Amino acid sequence: MPVTARSLGHRFPGGPWLFLGVDLDLRPGRSYAVTGPSGCGKSTLLAILAGWVKPARGTVEVDVPGRVSWVFQHPHGAPRRTARDHVSWPLLASGLRPADADARAQQLLDQVGLGAHADRPFAVLSGGEAQRLMLARGIAARPGLFLVDEPTAQLDRSRAHEVNIALSLLTEPATVTVVATHDEQTRQSCTDHIDLTAYGAVP
């Protein structure tokens, strides 16, 4: 499996176990919703998969082509640069010619419902639009592992729905997608479910 975890557990010094005994086999072309109450370790699990945090117990193996991309709760961008620019950057960095990068960026923006906003600067996008832009930019890098942390946490219901639709459309055949979420609709947008309460996240 491209991403595996065996007997994974984590706690911070002096604190309780967030989770214990997590066994995962994550496959490309699938999207995995990680759910559980606040403080159960959802974001920590993503950080462990990314290699940013060493687990207190167990092992993780990530054998995927390409980079790890992460989309955070709060979208950040260059205020004066356009939506197309944000998605083109990782494509240019991968070696595409500017014209090809712009064309692919436009396809991804169309896919997440932002095609008509391609020339708008980041500063004028709504929260939901900015989050959809971050999803498009993240997948543009062709990551082997795509981590998304609470993408709808700061959004109202209608904008969260737009983000969830975009998330469901961005599953790539060569990418393992893992999404930490409280949102039932986000969970339903993913193909698979990892419930951390099943691993001792809640006493």
Rank of each mutant, 00 (worst) to 15 (best):
N164G: 07
L92S: 08
L125V: 01
G39W: 15
V3K: 04
M134Q: 09
A50P: 07
Q107P: 11
G51T: 05
V176R: 07
R97T: 09
Q73D: 09
W70P: 08
S94R: 15
R27E: 15
E162L: 15
A174E: 15
K54W: 08
E150A: 12
A56S: 14
Q154Y: 11
G51R: 07
A136W: 00
R137F: 09
R142K: 15
R97A: 15
G128D: 08
H117D: 14
R67S: 13
G115V: 01
P143Q: 08
L125N: 00
P173L: 09
L108G: 00
P90C: 13
T35C: 11
H161T: 07
D110S: 13
L49E: 06
G138H: 06
E172I: 04
L26C: 07
A153K: 11
D110A: 14
A33D: 03
M1L: 13
M1Y: 10
A166K: 01
P173G: 05
Q131T: 04
A78R: 13
V87C: 05
H76M: 14
A123K: 15
L8C: 06
R27W: 13
K54L: 07
R137I: 04
V176K: 05
Q188G: 03
T152C: 11
P79M: 13
H161P: 03
A136T: 01
D183Q: 10
R81Q: 14
H86G: 04
L147T: 02
Y199G: 02
T186E: 03
L133E: 00
G127L: 06
G21Y: 10
P55D: 05
Q185S: 12
A160K: 04
W89L: 15
H193E: 13
P13E: 12
Y32N: 07
G58S: 06
Q188I: 10
T152E: 12
A201T: 11
V71I: 12
V60A: 11
G39N: 10
S38T: 12
G77P: 00
V64R: 01
E150W: 09
L96I: 03
P28G: 03
R6H: 14
P121D: 09
R137Q: 08
T181F: 10
L145S: 07
A5H: 06
D183A: 12
P2L: 05
R187I: 08
P75E: 11
A105G: 06
V87H: 00
Q154I: 08
F19H: 02
I165Y: 14
S31Y: 04
A118M: 02
W70K: 04
P16S: 12
E61H: 11
L18N: 01
F19T: 03
V178P: 07
E129A: 09
V176H: 06
G113Q: 03
R120H: 04
L49S: 05
Y32T: 04
S31A: 10
S94A: 15
Q154W: 10
R81T: 09
D110C: 13
G200W: 09
S126R: 08
V68C: 14
R132P: 00
F19A: 06
T171I: 14
K54V: 04
F72T: 07
Q185G: 07
S69R: 06
